[in-house]
Design a protein around this nucleic acid. Structure first.
Lengths: 333, 333
DNA sequence: TTGTACGCGTTATCAT
DNA sequence: ATGATAACGCGTACAA
């Protein structure tokens, strides 16, 4: 079904049909009604490819994420999907498994498709082939979860937040606080959180315990277990994210350590499940869905203006220290 | 950058440029090289909208899911994204919040966009405005998680699986097994699982306890808690999904009931986190990512053939009873 | 207010 | 093996 047939059916020109769809007020009510009836009867809808070709835009937003297995990103994508739909945009997501090559491929494919803008989370915004390609292309984009002065970002203050959680634990009386992290070099967030940890420890004049770095999340439980079995284990484990914290709790349990009686465990991310766990998880909650929504909002605002978000338009959203059951005063007090 | 400029740069016709991209073997090596060089130099890539308009296909698969907040669906989408990328397709997902109107809107928008095929999970495949629209359109599609003899589906045998989990609990010695479910009328899966529960109870000659139906997941903990406070609570709670089971464990904890010592709790879905919880969750594990992958596979197979999946091509994937720490012999034995 | 006609960038048919 | 050219379906000057 094409615009031609509708025009013939309604006894008008194709231009008039086009106008009744795109500028209804530019056509008289009488003919508008006739066209709308004809369109409805023939079950006509404008062909998106033809329109895209003609207008040079697609009302589609490309999305590049590490993985949908981590609820942080799927919750964010939910927010992106919601807000995009509200604003009349479709989304086209790609996952990268945290690899830079996949990031670049996704960006290129999206560019060739002709998305109007991109939302992405990259491994390292300061060294990213994907972003290099993107900047040259002049396509509007915004980074989420990343933070950099060189790009428009929507995120929380990872470093500050992590310092806060160390303070909270120190306030409780913890002296031996160890950080559990995935590969720090896999993402800028991991590094920022580690720096926040270091700052917190320094500010509280606490002993700097070696980081427990877990290269593969699937071996997290064993890795943490073996650390916990050492002579004097930490009284608190601050984990770089909620998924890791869940593993830490499991490791503690394997070592016959009760959380939080024998050891406190904290997370980071605020995934929805965290508050329903038993014990519920003390964590830094990021507004994941909101991050997605705001990213779309920021992007589409510029799309409407024909401009593109710049580093200065970055949004730093509030995080929240969710104190729950997985942390408490250390046992020896 | 257009095909015209590349043609001029390479000193050939546009047809030849097009051919070197689409049918490289139809062009002599010499000119092919010249064209490729020109294209590379001008950083040319075929315009997708123009190609879509001309070829009448988009190499895009529409995806319609209830929500990305439930890891079941985000894990599935991860599988869809992976396999689609492998097969050279993009995906365009929409979320519906379990509402039929949103399902229909998503399908319509996707149809107008011109997706080559659709993967969707609907509330009820036997009564679905979205599917009515879709069938008329002749666009290939496959349902996931749904099951119906009238549509191509990729799922597991929900009913059979749920019967199995009741058997397992009965074998352990449980006599008072209660089911915890969300709104049964919200999805066909919920109904199939409930039927499986009923069958299991009947086959084991057990007492039929009233179902604990939780209208809003956010109030699940309170709802289950109040049930557990009754004089003789069940010794086992079989939950309609993992998210509900996590709430049930929390409710038990609030009631000073230890899992599994005082009460067993089981889930359904096999979300990744379930096995890392403490206690780890006994559940019926569906291969969520695999369901996504196989759906894409089934769909693209037909796309290549120019045909469409029919009900007979439905795939019933194996589920697995994951016995973990949240279930055990009842206390009174 | 309405219509005519061109061009968006491809692919595919038909010649050569 | 290569080239000229006609669609694909739409939006929008420009003219009426």
């Amino acid at each position: 079904m094409t615009i031609q047939k509708v025009a013939k059916e309604a006894g008008v020109s194709v231009a008039t049909v086009s106008r009744t769809f795109n500028y209804p007020d530019q056509v008289s009510e009488k003919t508008r009604l006739r066209v709308q009836e004809a369109a409805a009867q023939l079950n006509y809808f404008p062909n998106a490819s033809a329109r895209n070709l003609r207008t040079q835009h697609t009302r589609t937003i490309g999305v590049v994420l590490p993985t949908l297995i981590n609820p942080v990103f799927s919750e964010c994508l939910q927010g992106i999907a919601e807000m995009a739909a509200e604003q009349g945009y479709s989304i086209m997501p790609f996952t990268t498994s945290y690899t830079q090559s996949a990031e670049q491929e996704a960006v290129e494919q999206l560019m060739h498709f002709g998305v109007d803008g991109l939302i992405l989370v990259v491994s390292d915004p300061h060294n990213s082939p994907a972003l290099d390609v993107l900047r040259k292309s002049k396509i509007p984009y915004v980074l989420t979860y990343n933070w950099s002065e060189k790009h428009p970002c929507v995120s929380v203050d990872n470093q500050q937040a992590f310092t806060e959680i160390v303070h909270y634990l120190a306030q409780l009386g913890h002296k031996k606080i160890a950080m559990v992290s995935g590969l720090r070099h896999a993402s800028d967030r991991a590094q920022q959180r580690y720096q926040g940890f270091l700052n917190g420890i320094a500010q509280q004049n606490l002993e700097v315990l070696p980081i427990i770095e877990v290269p593969f999340i699937d071996h997290a439980v064993e890795a943490i277990t073996s650390e916990l079995k050492k002579s004097t284990p930490p009284t608190a484990l601050v984990c770089s994210n909620d998924l890791m914290a869940i593993r830490a709790i499991r490791a503690a349990s394997i070592c016959q350590l009760q959380v939080p009686k024998d050891i406190s465990v904290t997370g980071f991310d605020g995934i929805r499940l965290a508050q329903d766990l038993t014990p519920s998880l003390t964590t830094i909650a990021q507004p994941n869905t909101e991050i997605g929504r705001r990213s779309v909002e920021l992007l589409t605002k510029h799309l409407r203006l024909g401009s593109r978000p710049c580093a200065a338009s970055s949004l730093l959203l509030d995080h929240q220290l969710h104190i729950a059951e997985s942390s408490a005063v250390p046992a020896f007090l």
